[in-house]
Design a binder for these strands. Structure first.
Lengths: 139, 139
DNA sequence: TTTGTTTTGTTATGTTATCACATCCGCACA
DNA sequence: TGTGCGGATGTGATAACATAACAAAACAAA
């Protein structure tokens, strides 16, 4: 799935769900999609800055919050970074495989990890699943 | 497993592996164990500070690095916090269930998540697996 | 005791994230 | 047309998290 398709898909998804993909938010999404690897909030900020002098940290963090809630972007917890979700709206339930050499992230949907050993009565609302290692090309 | 047992166990583990559990590191481990929930680095710092005025951020981060490497402590990525590992040396391979109400963490060993959908050729060296929700008591 | 290594102290700074309040903009409705 | 409302963005400040770089001390091996 290429950059343009992902963006179109995001538009459609937002239209359908009533989420407001404003120009600023779209711009941030675009930057995340283009990065094609986990990108830092302050890197996004400096890129936005080139076109919009008024961008400040809250600008980018707010946009990212929106995008994460809309299921368009994932936060990579162990990297304090963000990646585009290749499938709009599947933002929750993702399992990430992160190559520590080339930094590329492969997202696997529907790979809900076995919760066989889940503590009794525990009700999971959100899972962070990130596997780090080397991808095929980088070994 | 109670606090004292965990500390004894940690001592034994370090003796066996040749890791040097110095007074400072032991003190930090003690604080993490006592907390019985994820603790922040700066909270540890302010607790150490009461006895050791010279404690600075690197003091606690270095001790934590050591403890994590020794498999005595886990970093909870999505919280920027740290928890004691109830089983010395099993520090890698852990799956954490974190109650967002009472903040308590239950660690499950040996619950390696299915990697059935792992990208071909990907070699995992480290996994971050954190489930957030409500524990039985807090529902 | 000398030497090399590890640990700890110390200052400074880098990086990540949020708060609080002001302003703007689109929209519904009088 | 204007007025009020709510969501989005602008703005300045600061909080929270983490590391770099170098100095001093502790310690163990030779």
């Amino acid at each position: 799935m290429n950059e343009q398709d992902i963006l179109k898909d995001a538009e459609r998804h937002c239209t359908k769900t009533g989420a407001r993909l404003t120009p600023l938010r779209r711009r941030v999404l675009e930057l995340v999609v283009r990065a094609d690897a986990p990108v830092k909030a302050y890197d996004l900020l400096s890129q936005i800055d080139r076109s919009n002098t008024s961008a400040k940290p809250p600008t980018v963090y707010r946009a990212l919050d929106f995008l994460i809630n809309a299921g368009l972007v994932h936060r990579v917890e162990a990297l304090n970074a963000f990646v585009a979700c290749p499938q709009a709206g599947h933002g929750h339930a993702a399992v990430l495989y992160i190559c520590e050499v080339c930094t590329k992230v492969t997202e696997v949907q529907g790979a809900r990890p076995g919760q066989e050993h889940k503590p009794e009565g525990f009700c999971v609302t959100r899972s962070v699943i990130e596997h780090y290692g080397q991808c095929m090309n980088c070994r």
